[in-house]
Design a protein around this nucleic acid. Structure first.
Lengths: 346, 346
DNA sequence: TTGAAAGCGCTAACAT
DNA sequence: ATGTTAGCGCTTTCAA
């Protein structure tokens, strides 16, 4: 049987991995005993177990997860899909998910959907049989696809809500209220929202919340955009801000907010003297840009962790009513917001 | 045989995944034909193939990777281990690795070693049988462990060199020369290196290169630290800089450099008026901190991609002499460096 | 071109 | 407490 294995005579090729049978032979026991020694330590004689484990260690044996998965149908692997791994915003989600996955004894597979629904769909399909569940962060999939995927695999969403699918979302209602109240208390009478990608669920929630909060506080809220949620989106957004003679702007996210401030500085506009700027995300960098950025902080690590927990829970027992968790948000006030400038047209 | 499968009557539980047998039955062919339809399209009648694929699609069938892996010994999965996923420096490596892995038809598993050699070792051991190879970025494992691991799995290192293991490293010799020449051309006569973690291979290379380049250029180089390679390391490092009356400092990385500048600003010291500051990494943020940071850019995405390619190459054929690739570095000059201040003690 | 059968490494029933 | 056996889903001989 000329199977494609590493022939044992290559100079430095990977040594053939020890299998459970190798260990069994070397230890003079049956394979099932070796298996038990690893998985049900209490169901095997203490001394046998010691011996088996010693032999296994000597042979460098580690159970083959593929074989285990085949038998049990469980892979002990979770997949986390994000739109853009290099976006610092997702670092927190990733970190939290990693931690929770490790705590649950699971391995995390990371996927980058490149902001592309087709890529995301493909990853879900391809990874599906290889994982026990998915965490989809800022998913771009339409509701019906999400539902379909959720039939085959446990799924939890982060910052995206779809009825029937577990999700963890930031409390944008409270968050936008905090932002508006903060601006109102500084004397601002109106704000401009600089929108991000039209497909962004959280973008929609942010704008919705801002409108409601503005109305409640007696401010006028208008929307501009869409702009790229990156530093590169800054110039166009900043120019629009100046044209609109806004005294306060709320950007889709911190990257855009920082890009805006860069451009405003270039054009000789003072922040917060002339314009106050607020972002979303509280990314690394919002604390050292110039001026430092007032922004709404989400608990991204918690979000990642909670989502993993939700998926793990589903792998154990599917509940009929998938939970929705709302995580608190908190406005971090820094130097980019200040009193509304006094206008001649008061 | 009461195997633990999802019983088909749970309300909304995961539907049982279609297997190759299901498809075979539904299509009225043998399982082996279905298998061939997917893996050797040319070895099956055109019409049969169409039919089989149609049925498979209808059933939502996707081959089970675990079963494939069991048979072939290949998982089509690569693992990338980094010390800290949330460090923006690694985003580039991750991104590049993702891209190269996808191009090679492989899935990438990401692991966070938490800057901990023990965690790293554990991950390598646990993931070993589940993956076709490893990319170890900034590995903290001692040489002998690396060698041992390399016997069982193809491995490529990023910014770490160990004889006998494939690696991709940045050209720190050239990079440090660029830094020193830049400072020398601005009239600086000495520099202080703010060191990072003592175990860091690239940290050692940086300091080594700086010394050599300084000597060649007739500058004095001294070292200070170690400091935490984070914003939080800034204050201590900055205070040391002032105590040393340095005119130019080179920080272990950008995060530390930015932390230093923050503290210097706090203490009323002008950058670059009084002190010039240089970093390593060119992270996102080095372009919008204040002042913007002069830093040595590495080609991190390329590094990740090259490393993946090196691993993939090894999975095909192990070469006796694992390759070392040196990637160019480039100094990005921004506002944090300027002419050396004129000192009374000239 | 297709089907039948064996086996990848492991775990779980069942027997001892 | 331990061994024997069957089978997870798939690919791959080997026959037809």
């Amino acid at each position: 049987m000329p199977r494609s294995r590493a022939s044992s005579q290559d100079r430095s090729g990977p040594r053939r991995r020890a299998t459970i049978t190798d260990v069994a032979e070397a230890a003079g026991v049956a394979a099932s005993t070796v298996s038990r020694a690893f998985t049900r330590p209490d169901r095997v004689n203490h001394r046998t177990r010691e011996h088996v484990l010693a032999v296994a260690d000597e042979l460098g044996y580690a159970p083959n997860p593929a074989a285990r998965a085949l038998e049990s149908g469980r892979t002990n692997t979770l997949a986390l899909l994000v739109p853009d791994i290099s976006n610092p915003y997702f670092s927190g989600v990733i970190k939290g998910a990693e931690r929770a996955a490790a705590a649950a004894g699971m391995v995390l597979v990371l996927g980058d959907t490149q902001e592309n629904p087709a890529t995301e769909e493909q990853l879900v399909r391809r990874l599906g049989p290889a994982v026990d569940g998915f965490v989809l962060s800022a998913s771009r999939l339409p509701d019906d696809e999400l539902l379909r995927a959720a039939e085959l695999n446990p799924i939890a969403l982060v910052n995206r809500a779809t009825p029937g699918v577990a999700c963890v979302v930031a409390d944008f209602d409270s968050g936008t209220r905090q932002i508006v109240d903060h601006l109102a208390s500084l004397g601002h009478r109106s704000l401009v929202f600089l929108g991000g990608p039209p497909e962004s669920w959280s973008g929609a929630r942010r704008w919705f919340g801002l409108q409601a909060a503005a109305e409640a506080a007696g401010l006028t809220a208008t929307r501009s955009g869409p702009y790229s949620p990156t530093l590169g989106g800054g110039p166009a957004a900043a120019d629009a801000v100046l044209a609109a003679k806004a005294t306060a702007v709320v950007a889709h996210n911190d990257m855009l907010a920082i890009g805006v401030m860069l451009r405003l500085a270039e054009r000789g506009v003072s922040v917060p003297g002339d314009v106050s700027v607020v972002g979303f995300d509280n990314i690394v960098g919002s604390d050292f840009c110039s001026p430092t950025l007032t922004t709404l902080a989400e608990r991204t690590e918690d979000a990642g962790a909670r989502a993993v927990e939700a998926v793990v829970a589903q792998t154990v027992a599917r509940s009929s009513e998938p939970p929705t968790r709302v995580l608190p948000t908190q406005l971090v006030v820094r130097r980019s917001t200040g009193p509304a400038p006094v206008r001649s047209t008061a």
